[in-house]
Simulated scan of single mutants.
Amino acid sequence: MTNDFLILYLPSLLVILTIFTVGVASPGPATLMILGTAMSCGRSSAVALSLGVVTGSLFWGCVAAFGFVAAIKASMSLFTAMKLAGGLYLFYLAFRSWRSALTANHSLQVQSATIVSLRRSYVRGLLLHLTNPKAPLVWLATLSVGLDDTAPLPFLVLAIVLCELVAIIVFVGYAFLFSTPTASQFYISFRRPFDAALGLLFGAAAIKILTSRVN
């Protein structure tokens, strides 16, 4: 890729990486399972589980990205509908985060894992993300904010690769952090302001996509 190409699409790439980072770092089924596995089965099992989640994320990322390409080629109306769906899902995430931030008595429900081998840990993480209906919506919302109808295929591939690197850092990082009791207790203590900040970020992203013009 040339320097001109990177400079041209750098703002969109930064937007995509920001939204994706917030999305994968926010609490959800994968985060809770990684936390439970790290605390009950140890760091190695949690890392294997995390890599399974990342693999599932890669699958949905490819589906979402190439779905955008197909939508652009097929119909501008379909492309617009996909962007609107992503924006509405971001509003849903914002609402859920704000509701959680306003809930005082909220206990973190950790899903205890009974995984024995690293292979089973990986497969469990993979199946979790492949069967999670929210996973493709996160990718759809992420790409909706940062893409337009002129985005070339190399840009989509670069965006997916960088997002997957972010996913590895976040999920494997959680596996390491949550293997220590101090880190999990810290998250529980600061959950409400963390959720409030997430709500603002999701809401701002939703407004951006729903008010943007599709050329």
Rank of each mutant, 00 (worst) to 15 (best):
A64G: 06
M33Y: 02
S50K: 08
S212T: 12
F91M: 15
S50V: 05
V15W: 08
A101W: 02
T2E: 09
K73T: 06
L127S: 11
Q109L: 07
L165Y: 03
T80Q: 11
V24T: 13
R213T: 13
I19D: 05
T114G: 08
L6A: 14
A206G: 11
Y89R: 09
L140V: 08
A141V: 02
G56M: 06
Y9P: 01
V110T: 13
E164P: 00
G199S: 12
L35C: 09
A205Q: 02
I169C: 12
M33V: 05
L158W: 06
A104C: 01
F95W: 12
Q185S: 14
L13Q: 10
L10P: 00
L13Y: 03
A113E: 12
V123H: 06
S121A: 15
H129R: 05
F20A: 14
I72Y: 03
S112K: 10
T150W: 05
L127F: 08
V161A: 15
P193E: 14
K208E: 10
A64P: 00
F66G: 07
S26M: 09
P133Q: 13
L90I: 06
T103Q: 13
A71Y: 04
G36M: 10
A46N: 08
G52H: 10
L153Y: 07
L58S: 12
M39H: 04
G52Y: 09
S179P: 00
L156P: 00
I207C: 12
L88E: 05
C41S: 13
S26D: 09
P11L: 14
V161P: 00
P136G: 14
T37P: 00
L147I: 12
L108G: 01
S50Y: 05
K208G: 01
A167S: 15
L78V: 13
A46R: 03
S44G: 05
E164K: 06
G146K: 09
I34F: 02
L165H: 04
S57R: 01
S50M: 07
L128D: 08
A70N: 01
P152I: 15
S77C: 00
T18G: 14
P11C: 14
V69S: 13
S107A: 10
L158Y: 07
D148S: 14
D149M: 11
V63A: 15
L198P: 01
